[in-house]
Computed example of a mutant assay.
Amino acid sequence: MSTITSSALQSSQPPILPAAFSGNQPKTIRLYPLSNYTFGTKENQPEEDPSVLARLQRLQEHYEQYGMRRTCEGILVCHEHCHPHILMLQIANAFFKLPGDYLHHHEGELEGFKSRLNERLAPVGSQFSGEGVNDEWEIGDTLAQWWRPNFETFMYPFIPAHVTRPKECKKLYFIQLPRTKVLSVPKNMKLLAVPLFELYDNTARYGPQLSAIPHLLSRYNFEFVDENGKVVAVTPGGGPDGDPKTKILAGGEENGDKID
């Protein structure tokens, strides 16, 4: 497959085609446009813990009863203007997180993860009907594992040498979004589409886990598909044809936020 966009080849000064340069890479990922997806809202989902201290206390209680806590979160990718965007949740206008949550001690990994994704993002009742409403989640590669060595907030992408009993492991998975899908977010949260360049090297706003996502995805090549199912760009290849920016897709009504 050529790695140059058709528009580039038709320019007055077409580029010099390089030799093949895709050895030992995973399969190319097809990304669909943000406009292919339908977004709605559902009832509030209050946070389980009123404070960070309460959350760490609950983690300790879980550890004492069941051992290390297992947490699963998904990296859901689509595109806008041929630039990858990550779907993530914003809570209380400040805290950002990926869809997912911790597993109950009796749950299997992937089955429990799909349940957490449905709790956060699946539509409820008869709010929507038709294509994309009840599509199964396609869980892809594990892209990262983050470890919590103690009952504290900071996590590491490795187990520190002195730690033999980590208290939590959080796994991040690539989620292959289908051509269409219906997603509903709790009203007390926002669902955002955040471009990769906004996340990159932006630990001050998004923290070390989310700002590392561009690194995690750099192993893939992408095909960008338009609303008609036509591949309009690939990587390596042409850049954005518009002005990518973070977009509020759903939620946040309680705060009076306007959805583009």
Rank of each mutant, 00 (worst) to 15 (best):
G125N: 11
K258A: 06
Q57G: 12
P160Q: 13
F197C: 05
F96T: 10
H105M: 04
L143C: 02
L76R: 14
E107M: 08
K181V: 05
F113V: 07
E48C: 10
G238V: 02
E107T: 02
V52W: 04
V231S: 11
A233E: 14
R120S: 03
T5W: 12
D241E: 11
L217V: 05
D135R: 10
P99V: 06
R69K: 15
R69V: 15
P99E: 01
E47G: 12
Y66T: 04
S35Y: 03
L76W: 14
E111D: 14
Q60T: 09
G256D: 11
R179D: 01
I213H: 01
V234Y: 02
F21W: 09
I86T: 06
G256L: 07
P18C: 07
K247F: 01
F154V: 08
T5H: 09
I4F: 08
R58Q: 14
C78K: 12
N202P: 05
L191C: 00
A233Q: 07
G67V: 06
Q60P: 02
R165N: 09
Q65W: 07
E131G: 09
P186R: 10
G74F: 06
S115W: 06
D49T: 09
N93E: 12
L210C: 04
T235C: 00
D49N: 14
P244G: 12
Y156G: 06
A193F: 00
G74S: 15
P33W: 10
I259D: 07
Y32D: 03
R179F: 02
R219M: 04
N150C: 07
S126P: 02
E119G: 05
L59M: 15
N188T: 09
V232D: 05
S6F: 12
S211N: 08
G238H: 11
C82Q: 15
V163A: 02
W137G: 08
K190I: 01
P208V: 06
G256A: 13
H83S: 10
R116V: 05
D49S: 15
D141N: 10
N150D: 11
T246M: 10
P214G: 01
V182R: 08
D135N: 13
I259T: 13
N118Y: 03
H105P: 01
E64G: 12
T142P: 03
S12P: 00
S51H: 00
T28I: 08
N228P: 01
F197L: 07
Q145T: 13
Y66E: 11
A204F: 05
P166V: 09
T3D: 06
